[in-house]
């Protein structure tokens, strides 16, 4: 207590107070910000749709068709909703660069505004899942234990127990979820991009999806036992026991066996 009292009188006190004030302001902003963001996201103006259509015709229509009706091997986008577009475009999966087993995530080609315009255009073609609100994807409000139960039944077989990713057949894969944003995780569940099944609100309710996000986000603080070795299980553990364990011990054995000079 005494120490605290001394510190209050110190010359750093004003700086500390200022920092505290900034922190509170920042915290308040963070708490209030979601509502404003939701407001901008949900309101798509007619000009957005117009601009989105232009972007679509320039960048997407070659494969998906002038009216997004799709063609042989290319899905129709009528009715896929804004969520699907936002997921595919904001993760860089669309537009596709080359044909392959699956479209990989890469640096997005469009900025947030253009993505929103594209989403608005596609959403205007037919009713589909909308972009989730910040409330829906806020992992801190989820139940991590329930998220674990849902994740391991519905997700872990492809994405691995903690979301490290895994292989599918024929060169396809379930990507790692370490860097995926909560919004993209939610949208992926909702729309079932590429090989992924669709987890509509009857399979996983909105709250359950948030629980899953909460679990995935909890995995990002690593493992209590130390380096997680990629979190891919016994194969990497076996590799490391040979490299580190046998490596170090063979080194020691050579030292012990060597004649000293």
């Amino acid at each position: 207590m005494k120490a605290l009292a001394t510190r209050r009188r110190s010359r750093f006190a004003p700086t500390a107070l200022l920092l505290l004030a900034l922190l509170i302001t920042g915290g308040l902003y963070a708490a209030l910000a979601p509502s404003t963001a939701t407001a901008t996201a949900s309101v798509a103006t007619a000009s957005d749709v117009e601009l989105g259509m232009k972007l679509f015709q320039a960048n997407c229509a070659t494969c998906h068709g002038m009216n997004a009706q799709g063609s042989e091997g290319v899905p129709s986008l009528i009715g896929v909703g804004a969520a699907a577009v936002d997921f595919q475009v904001s993760t860089g999966r669309m537009p596709m660069q080359a044909n392959g087993p699956q479209a990989p995530a890469k640096t997005p080609q469009f900025n947030e505004e253009q993505t929103a315009q594209l989403a608005a255009y596609v959403a205007s073609l037919g009713a589909g899942p909308a972009i989730p609100t910040d409330e829906e994807i806020d992992g801190s409000q989820g139940d991590v234990a329930n998220g674990m139960a849902l994740f391991r039944t519905n997700c872990a077989m492809c994405h691995n127990a903690v979301g490290a990713g895994g292989a599918l057949s024929g060169g396809k894969y379930a990507p790692a979820l370490w860097d995926t944003s909560a919004r993209n995780i939610y949208q992926a569940m909702l729309t079932g991009p590429q090989s992924m099944p669709v987890f509509n609100d009857n399979v996983l309710t909105a709250e359950e999806k948030r629980d899953v996000i909460s679990y995935v986000e909890a995995q990002r603080s690593g493992s209590p036992g130390g380096a997680d070795l990629g979190a891919i299980g016994p194969v990497s553990e076996g590799l490391w026991v040979w490299v580190v364990g046998m490596g170090l011990l063979l080194g020691c054995a050579v030292w012990i066996g060597a004649k000293s000079s």
Partner: peptide, 14 residues
């Protein structure tokens, strides 16, 4: 319990 209408095309229930 699951209703048939709960499934959309491409969805999976365990």
């Amino acid at each position: 319990p699951i209703k048939a209408s709960d499934l959309t095309i491409g969805s999976v229930f365990h």
